[in-house]
Design a protein around this nucleic acid. Structure first.
Lengths: 216, 216
DNA sequence: TATTATTTTTAGACAAGTCTAAAAAAATTA
DNA sequence: TAATTTTTTTAGACTTGTCTAAAAATAATA
């Protein structure tokens, strides 16, 4: 239906527009590691196919069709990540690149059966929600640890940085999805956050606290 | 490592060379539904990459490297077919096109784990052998039903035609992998083959008998 | 507001893979 | 062996997606 490149553009635009609304050419170029001029070319093609709203110099947003396609790609990506971790025993930091390829397998029937095979999971291994076969999913409002008050806490429920370096760091310190944590103290000198978890103290940097999301 | 197109060419050349040794430009063109001129272009590229032996007008054969790549693609294809049938409950006539896409997922680690997950199967749903992680597999010499003598028989073990029309026909008449059959009679008028199976008689055409393979 | 800097777009070119039409080589037939 | 047919290759062009360099539009600053 859509080329691999088109799908990657739609996914990138979707992800960028969640945070920022309208998306700029340069943002897309950065996100896809390509040049602004290449992006402009592609934007015209996507607009011709009614997948994005685009007027030059004004940035882009997805049309309803475009969003549906993007959400579907994300559904496929997250279901394959779940499969790789739950069925093939990969670690959560190993699956991104593989799922990046697998998300382009086109059969809807296949992905729906895969969904069923795994018992209709609602979160992928990184805590991100998996859209159902109609594209519906709950956006839970998660907060980075750096944004909550001292003496409050919650359940680790997601990450903002999906790099394997970050995920490996978290794994090493047991900072995994589902863990209950409490912010004990913030050291004002360098904003180090002192967490209490499993009755032990753990110091994490501001950077880590910014990228680790909790549900209150 | 290799482009999708390169992989498809290597696979096609591999399959054609099993039957005929050296493969011609036109054979490849027919098998990939493309034009002879396109094939010539690609053959030069594959030869540059040392994947095939090619001198113009003389046909092609795979190099050792080329064969290794081709066998690996076939391994991936057949493992995914097995997965789709055994784990996701697809029927044997539904899986070809999906596997055709999935065979290009590149991770070796992924395919080896998938292999393990399914218990290292040795045959795909159509009876074709699945190469192991070193590319080894047994080529069992199967005979079409049309080639065996009256009153002899064997186990249905493979098909020569993988089209869904043919597979659906077989399914409908319970002519599935593993079934034991015996050739009772060949009607000389039109070469219809009368099979005995499950203590019942079944008439199949010469065409069907040609495409249904048995192990003696 | 005028100037400068940044962002975005256009113009022209390139690589991969495909095509049609025509030429060259090989195979077949007379 | 010569003529004809078939197969294969070459030549030139098109599409998709990319790039660099330069121009145009927008945003920021003086």
């Amino acid at each position: 239906m859509y080329t691999l490149t088109e799908e990657n553009y739609l996914k990138a635009i979707y992800k960028l527009s969640i945070q920022t609304g309208k998306v700029s050419t340069n943002q897309i170029a950065a996100s896809l590691a390509t040049k602004a001029s290449s992006v402009t070319d592609m934007l015209r093609k996507l607009a011709d196919k009614l997948l994005i709203n685009y007027t030059r110099y004004q940035g882009v947003s997805l049309t309803q069709t475009g969003e549906k396609v993007a959400v579907n790609i994300i559904r496929r990506h997250r279901l394959w990540e779940f499969f790789l971790v739950e069925k093939l025993n990969f670690k959560w930091d190993e699956v991104h690149d593989m799922a990046e390829e697998m998300e382009h397998i086109s059969s809807t029937e296949l992905i729906d059966r895969l969904d069923e095979f795994m018992g209709f999971p609602t979160r992928d291994p990184h805590g991100d929600p998996i859209p159902d076969c109609n594209g519906n999913f709950k956006i839970i409002d998660l907060k980075p640890i750096s944004a909550i008050a001292v003496h409050s806490g919650g359940i680790i429920s997601g990450v903002r940085d999906h790099s394997s370096a970050f995920l490996q760091y978290l794994e090493k310190h047991q900072l995994t999805i589902g863990k209950k944590i409490m912010v004990k103290e913030i050291i004002s000198y360098d904003n180090t956050v002192v967490l209490q978890m499993d009755n032990k103290d753990l110091h994490i940097s501001r950077d880590v606290a910014n990228n680790l999301l909790i549900a209150l």
